[in-house]
Nucleic acid binder design. Structure first.
Lengths: 125, 125
DNA sequence: GCCTTTCGCAACTATCGGTTGCGGATCAAC
DNA sequence: GTTGATCCGCAACCGATAGTTGCGAAAGGC
């Protein structure tokens, strides 16, 4: 019963969506289809340069892609990569959830005077 | 259709579980019931002091609680708070998922020559 | 042609995750 | 009870990152 859940987690991808500003940026890009560093900074409490740096990070992990349009650089979300990130979120969430549930079941079992061994034979998964 | 999903996200809580080392620490505490800074650092690739700092962070957001036992400080996970964190993970994941699905549906609709307006009348939530 | 906009680059600051080093408290053993 | 091992907290330091300001260059709009 060791720490297995982190094995299938891409730390780069996770830390990319770990930043609150980047999360809001992804959110904005999703709801508006596309955006530039300038347009995004208009709706965020940070400067254009900060947004630009975040876009570099998001681009590096493949969550967004840029297309040059004249002097502008339009960014849009890579659906497949975001879907992968979402899968990781739910994966970790599910793993912890089962752990919590098991602890809860165990606590109840002990409270009812049932030995740990007896409970251990229950539905494994 | 604005960026609403972040409204119900506690940035402190999120960034607490955003760090890979802290995630592994929570994982260890869950699987072993409790642990000290020293015992945790034995199974992690970082020093005791680094672990201690992380424990402060986790304690500050209420994900773990300490109980002094002699010269040791035993930490254990706060199930309720971790459950809340898990809920946020799945919340954001679900929100992004629906967005992605909607985009996908929209793309398919356009491809099939169906106007955007017609599709818009689908299940709102 | 001129002014605005958009961008990229550079310097600087603060915070954070990590390290090393040290001194203090507690437990065990003799 | 002194000695030694262990567990801890505090402080200084380092590198990366999230943010800022300031500037110059390139592309559009008039």
């Amino acid at each position: 019963m060791s720490a297995v859940l982190d094995d299938r987690v891409d730390d780069d991808l996770w830390s990319a969506i770990g930043d609150p500003t980047r999360r809001r940026m992804l959110d904005l890009l999703l709801s508006e289809g596309s955006g530039t560093a300038t347009s995004l900074s208009d709706r965020l409490p940070v400067t254009r340069q900060a947004v630009a740096k975040h876009l570099v990070v998001l681009d590096r992990v493949g969550l967004v892609h840029a297309s040059a349009v004249g002097r502008e650089r339009q960014f849009r979300v890579d659906q497949a990569q975001l879907a992968r990130a979402v899968a990781q979120l739910t994966d970790v969430g599910a793993a912890w959830d089962t752990r919590l549930q098991r602890i809860k079941r165990l606590a109840e079992a002990i409270e009812h005077g049932v030995s740990e061994k007896d409970r251990e034979r229950g539905p494994r998964r």
